[in-house]
Write a protein that binds this DNA or RNA. Structure first.
Lengths: 178, 178
DNA sequence: ACCTGAACACCGTTCAAGT
DNA sequence: ACCTGAACACCGTTCAAGT
């Protein structure tokens, strides 16, 4: 059917743009990557990007959703049961996407779509953390505060490069039930 | 002396620009405040700003230094000895300058001067926190990790608006010695 | 439906010229 | 020393026009 063919093409092209933009955002940064630069990579005119995405921030959100799906899958399939190691694993994964993470925070004030995505992401991470802390048998009245401290600390770990040793000590402290 | 007179004038004009820019950065935000807008406020041509400050980020650093001096003074004069209350006080002060704080983080990647200022600021805050935790008699091998968690959590508190209740619970947990 | 050339409005910053 | 008019290079985005 012509209808389906077209939809297929559109999605392929969208993914092509997402893929190119993702690489550029990670390597050069969001601000340093002009729409023009992405367009060159995909071999179209700059304004063609706007046929597939409402604007630069929505393109970013599309990239983030693709990344999230990918990593969430890996998280679920993780073998380790040790909570400290699981937390370190998450931090390491986020570290690799560090540039995207800080871009999200930097652009919160410019895009409501991004703000919504960010809020969803926070709720998701908090939910996963809550589960881990419950599994450890932490008292319920402590959990909410600990979860928030943990989430903020993870963000801090990403924003400020610490040594491997400091990172591990912090992660261990975050999941300690004392 | 003509020499001194001139220096005086220059500093006055600089402070005038700092004062105007501070208000605009706080009310409208750094990005939303064009150099042109500041120039209008001070009644000069846009490029005149560059006679007094190397660029927009250096103007920001000047504003930050003025703020820091002011608040550091108030911190030292604070009457309360309760560590939780002292911490909440700091968070509240930073909350009021919230827009400046997030601007600093957003612009770290664009300005080395700002990066240096930010690092100094972190060292200062960590130092003050370390002192507070030592006063509480916390074990030395725990302090470094706790200090880092506290600093990151404070940043998180500023970035994400929480309720008064949550804020207090978190601050209390940060200075708990258990 | 998809793509483009040309333009728009705006930005921080620079430079040569004035006093 | 201090200030300015005019320009530069660049940005994300829009619009009318093409196929």
């Amino acid at each position: 059917m012509a209808r389906n063919k077209r939809v297929q093409d559109r999605e392929e092209k969208q993914e092509e743009i997402i893929h190119a933009a993702r690489a550029l955002f990670l390597n050069e940064g969001y601000d340093a990557t002009s729409i023009n630069r992405i367009a060159i990579e995909v071999q179209v005119a700059p304004n063609t990007i706007y046929w597939y995405f409402k604007n630069k921030d929505e393109l970013l959100v599309s990239i983030l959703n693709a990344e999230l799906t990918k990593h969430l899958n890996a998280y679920m399939l993780q073998p380790t049961q040790d909570p400290t190691e699981r937390l370190i694993w998450v931090v390491d994964q986020l570290q690799l996407a560090n540039r995207l993470v800080s871009t999200v925070h930097a652009r919160l004030k410019f895009s409501t779509e991004l703000r919504e995505w960010h809020e969803q992401f926070h709720l998701l991470v908090e939910g996963l953390l809550r589960l881990e802390l419950q599994k450890l048998g932490m008292a319920n009245d402590q959990i909410e505060t600990k979860v928030k401290i943990a989430v903020f600390t993870i963000e801090g770990l990403l924003a400020h490069q610490l040594s491997e040793q400091e990172k591990r000590a912090i992660c261990a402290a975050l999941v300690s039930t004392s």
